[in-house]
Design a protein around this nucleic acid. Structure first.
Length: 502
RNA sequence: GAGAGCGUAGCUCAGCCGGUAGAGCAGCGGCCUUUUAAGCCGUUGGUCGUGGGUUCGAUUCCCACCGCUCUCACCA
């Protein structure tokens, strides 16, 4: 019964397994070891003039097949793109053509042949030698394409988001744009590294497993170390460790790594995500604003070749200088309300009037943040630095040089989304202790995201940390922006999913 | 965590005010040595997400569960 069902379910695979057996009978190894390929599809197409009538060798996956009895056209895809091949009985010989007849869409082959153009002008490899390199036994989704006016129209695209994320390998094979996104991702990240390295900053690695989590407000993942028999947290930020390194005497340190936050999953949140944090000694947040502007535009120019981007239909111009406006001014602009200096009670009233839901235990900082998030954020389409946040919201930031109620902090917004967070770092150990203590009070009041008090970090500050500017940037979000991706899952190769049921 | 929607062939989708399912592509067989969403003829393939309930009868109606998507909440 069950075997019969298996047979039915895998009918398509069964056929391919039979072909596999036939290939073996012909002494063809369907899983070979290597192939001497010397050319790439895209290169041949782009430099046709040089390749015309030249012999080339190329390897890739068969993506489409048009058979005509004793000859056939196929499209072969390698890492660079796709190219058409022409296989003719008279050219490859009977034995090889018999093997070719047993091939399917999805098989990986190597070919040698001459570069020509067909009657319709398509650049094509006229194959003289064909070799099966890897047999495909599981059918790929079939995506048909037509080229019209240089545009590729896709029919029956492999679009099931669940299948695409769970089987990214299929997504990458079948959907052209997907692999492009991850190539851009790699370019963006290496662009950041290169930019920071050239500035002389030191790339470091700090603990992922931490006995005390800190540096951000978020719920952590907890785990346990058996040998030490202790609770450990997966980091939610790198901040406190990186600042310890500034205490240690480095002028600039950065880390690009995964952080983990035990929060909801949605279009802009994945439980593990890539963060870049940077700390620079003897600098303040003004320096960091200039750096963010310069770094993002440098990277965009390098990865995209332009500073004018489109995100989900919105035209965005990254050209510096970016607008800078204080948090309170931004709120005033969008609500008409001047909330500076208002007490917690007054702010609660305002929130109520604006129909913004707040928790009873929230302090003024969190309420302001909620008002900002509700009334301002979505309008910050063009790059904007929101600067000077209330001190309650920023327990690790240094007080504003002109106003002790504020901290020297900014967040860059693009397309209505925060892409980073930066401040002149608090280096007064006494102030820092008080800030931690008020966080503990918030925690006691019911805020389970309030930060923990880190004694060792305070001890480090007591030894003296030079004035320092710090920056955190959500790399996934930056990549979403630069690749016009609507979901964070489109820029993470294997996004967090519920387990697949079998 | 709450609400809404979706889940039918390998892929993209129809269908069903209840009578155990269709198309295109892919596959298989045939014709075809410059096709390109190749074409023409023929054809295989489905426990209609899972489990219950109502019913003579459920893919369809009801309930629960699982998964995904969207919106909201939390957050980056």
């Amino acid at each position: 019964m069950s075997e019969e069902q298996l047979h039915d379910i895998n009918q398509l695979m069964q056929v391919r397994l039979e072909k596999l057996a036939q290939l073996k009978e012909k002494n063809v190894n369907p899983f070979t070891y290597s192939f001497a390929r010397e050319h790439f599809a895209q290169d041949i197409i782009q430099h046709y003039a040089e390749y015309e009538n030249q012999q080339v060798s190329l390897a890739g996956r068969i993506m489409s097949l048009r058979r005509m009895g004793k000859a056939a056209f196929a499209n072969v895809m390698d890492s660079s793109g796709r190219i058409q091949i022409y296989v003719r009985l008279d050219d490859v010989g009977e034995a090889s053509y018999e093997v070719f007849k047993l091939l399917d869409i999805g098989d990986i082959i190597g070919v040698q042949g001459k570069v020509v153009k067909t009657h319709t002008g398509e650049i094509t490899i006229h194959v003289s030698v064909l070799e099966l390199l890897t047999k495909n036994i599981r059918p790929l989704p079939i995506v048909k394409e037509k080229e019209e006016d240089g545009k590729i129209i896709t029919y029956d695209a492999f679009a099931d988001t669940e299948a695409r994320y769970r089987q990214r390998y299929v997504d990458l094979v079948v959907n052209r744009n997907v692999s492009d996104v991850f190539v851009k991702r790699a370019k963006i990240i290496s662009g950041i590294r290169q930019y920071l390295d050239e500035k002389g900053f030191l790339e470091v690695e700090t603990p992922v497993l931490q006995p005390i989590y800190g540096g951000a407000t978020a719920r952590p993942f907890t785990t346990h170390h058996n040998a030490l028999n202790m609770k450990l947290y997966m980091r939610i930020a790198d901040e406190l460790y990186l600042k310890r390194l500034i205490v240690g005497g480095y002028d600039g340190v950065y880390e690009i790594s995964k952080d983990f936050r035990n929060e909801g999953i949605d279009r802009t949140h994945n439980p593990e995500f890539t963060m870049m944090e940077l700390y620079v000694a003897y600098k303040d947040y003004y320096y960091m604003m200039d750096l963010v502007e310069d770094m993002v535009t440098t990277i965009a120019q390098k990865a995209l070749g332009t500073l004018k981007i489109t995100y989900q239909g919105q035209e965005i111009d990254l050209t510096p200088p970016w607008k800078r406006i204080t948090l309170f001014d931004a709120i005033k602009q969008h609500t008409g309300l001047d909330l500076y200096g208002k007490s917690t009670e007054e702010l609660k009233e305002v929130a109520k009037r604006l129909h913004i839901e707040i928790e009873s235990f929230w302090g003024s900082g969190k309420i302001l943040d909620a008002i900002f998030g509700e009334k301002v954020e979505e309008f910050l389409i063009q790059p904007t630095f929101i600067i000077d946040y209330p001190v309650e919201l920023s327990p690790l930031a240094k007080r504003h040089r002109n106003d002790p109620k504020l901290v020297e902090r900014f967040e860059p917004f693009i397309a209505g989304r925060e892409i980073g967070n930066s401040f002149s770092e608090l280096n007064d150990p006494i102030d820092q202790r008080e800030r931690f203590e008020s966080q503990m009070a918030l925690k006691d009041a019911g805020d389970d995201e309030a930060q923990m008090l880190d004694e060792d970090f305070l001890r480090a500050l007591e030894y003296g940390m030079p004035p320092t500017a710090g920056l955190g940037m959500g790399i996934d979000r930056l990549i979403m922006l630069l690749t016009d991706s609507p979901s964070i899952r489109d820029v993470i190769l294997f996004p967090t999913m519920r387990p697949e049921i079998k």
